[in-house]
Simulated scan of single mutants.
Amino acid sequence: MAHQLTSAERDVPSLSSVWRESVQMDSSVVEPREKNDAWVVLRAGCDPAMTRDLRVLRNLREKEACGPASSYSSSSGWEQTDIQPHMRRTLTEWMLQVCEELHCEEEVFPHAVQYLDSCVARFTVERSNLQPLGTACMFLASKMRDMVPLTASKLCVYTDNSVSVPDILQWEVAVVSRLDWCLASVVPSDFLELILHALPFVQTPRRSKMRRHVHTYIALAALDSRLSVFLPSTVVCACVSLAMQRLKLLDTAACPYLVTNFLASLLAIDLSTILLCCDRLGSVVELSLPACFLNRSAVRVTGIGSSSAESLDVAQTSVRSPQEMMVKHSSPP
């Protein structure tokens, strides 16, 4: 016999109606990964209970300290008999292009690079197996981070069918076994929302622009092996500090060293370590961004606006060296 709803049960709003109201209240909830006539993916918005709780930052710091990325240097792992450090750049650039073309979440690419560096540091890899390894790392990272994970068959297309579906599945098993099934690692973008809500220097309407630029810098940092020796929390602090300088989001009374000092205190990181990371990241950005702006697709997928004014602002605004920031920090007000 069918259950008859009582008047109290009829008055309870349905889950779908509550979800539709939340979408209308926060337009950032709707962000399609792919637009066509068949389907549109809807993503959830940020939870203020998580982004405003500093205990989440402490938990992330503890997690990254014991993660695989903290126990190795990617540059040392790439100095093997059959592979060289410059091959990492070539492979990661291809991985970034694939992630961009498939509209993956921003966390997928740096997470895949973490898997890649950890695997290369732990066992010997032949040159001919670099692309299958990179493909398997993207496959795993997409499962961990994407709302709609990438399929092995789709990844095969981007290898020009040089890597088959069975190859990807076999390398997937090899990667997870080498990583001891510890796949839930921390990436720099995991700290971003918490930092943006804690920063007193950034107004709420400017967070969206700030977020896009920081994600771009995180991707550029993942491409360069010199920056992979830093913990994710240090990398995101450098990216945030650099983005605030280039976008000129600081108030007239604030200086860049105040941002760096605030981030160092917020995440309990040594200030000199952040400054060193800022120095390396600044050189990477100066060399990489002009080339990216010449490529329209790179501008589109990295999240930076395609307008020439915004690109010009980011490309030509000077970056303060860590020495200048340290001098300002040590000088009396």
Rank of each mutant, 00 (worst) to 15 (best):
A69Q: 14
E101A: 00
E62H: 12
A65P: 11
V98H: 00
T124P: 11
C66V: 11
C137T: 04
Y72V: 03
L133P: 13
P110A: 12
L130V: 05
S118W: 02
F109V: 10
F123K: 15
E79Y: 08
E64A: 07
C99K: 00
R127S: 15
S73P: 07
L102M: 06
E107N: 02
R122E: 08
D117V: 07
R127K: 15
T90C: 09
C66D: 14
F109G: 06
S74M: 08
V108M: 03
V125W: 09
Q114G: 13
E107D: 03
G77S: 04
G134R: 08
S73V: 04
A65S: 15
N129Q: 14
G134C: 15
S118H: 07
E79F: 13
I83K: 00
S128A: 14
W78P: 01
C137L: 06
M138D: 05
L102Y: 05
S128H: 15
Q80D: 00
H111Y: 06
F109A: 07
V120P: 07
N129S: 14
Q97I: 15
P110Q: 13
R61D: 07
H103F: 05
E105N: 03
T135M: 12
W94A: 15
Q84L: 12
L116Q: 02
W78E: 02
V108R: 00
G77D: 03
Y115S: 13
A136R: 01
Y115T: 08
V120I: 09
G67V: 09
F109N: 06
T124W: 14
W78G: 02
S142E: 04
S128N: 13
V98A: 00
S142M: 10
